[in-house]
């Protein structure tokens, strides 16, 4: 059976058994998307490259930890891979002092790396919710709630960083994000697309 005919799930399963050719195929199929996730969060190509590298070394070592089902709900391999990359990106973000980092190359570092036409975090959240058909459900949230959730998710910002960027009180941001997560869970459950 050629590698091209294998699903991503099968490739990850074979990677877990030490099949390096399948691991290479996992990389080839997903790198552009995962690099996009890392770049979106970190804002700089070099940092995103480092994170992607660390993420794939981790995937090679821990492919056996991928579970295709959690509590009876299927877990798409891509969502697992994205979680690995996001966790590495969050580690990288925590390791650097964001303020110091942003002062060195200028506040437009994100635009430099991702292109001036890159969609905003809120645009991405809108696109994701449309693709998942939960737009109407999530639309019940106030704009501030969606904005804070989008900044935390797509840019890896902390509560205080979201508060600073939005010019809003920290307590309000925490409540907005909490409500956004609750609503997201309810919307996905109603659509039957996630646990």
């Amino acid at each position: 059976m050629s590698l091209d005919s294998l699903t991503l799930q099968q490739l990850i399963a074979r990677t877990a058994r030490g099949d390096h050719a399948c691991f290479a195929q996992v990389y080839a199929r997903t790198q552009a998307h995962l690099f996009g996730v890392a770049l979106r969060m970190l804002g700089r190509e070099q940092a995103a490259e480092d994170v992607l590298q660390e993420a794939f070394v981790s995937i090679w070592k821990s492919a056996g930890s991928y579970r295709s089902e959690v509590n009876g709900q299927p877990v798409q391999p891509m969502t697992w891979l994205i979680a690995v990359v996001r966790n590495k990106a969050l580690d990288a973000l925590r390791q650097r002092t964001r303020r110091a980092e942003s002062e060195l190359p200028g506040d437009d570092a994100l635009d430099d790396a991702t292109g001036a036409s890159a969609p905003s975090a809120l645009d991405l959240l809108g696109e994701a919710t449309r693709a998942l058909h939960i737009e109407a459900c999530l639309g019940a949230l106030d704009g501030s709630h969606r904005q804070s959730l989008a900044l935390a998710y797509y840019q890896g910002l902390s509560h205080s960083e979201v508060a600073q960027q939005m010019g809003a009180p920290l307590g309000s941001v925490k409540a907005w994000i909490r409500r956004g997560l609750d609503k997201l869970k309810a919307c996905l459950a109603a659509r039957g697309v996630a646990a």
Partner: peptide
């Protein structure tokens, strides 16, 4: 798993 669904909207690069 839930949040990973949102990540699929990030533009590939």
């Amino acid at each position: 798993s839930r949040l990973g669904l949102l990540g699929q909207a990030a533009p590939p690069h």
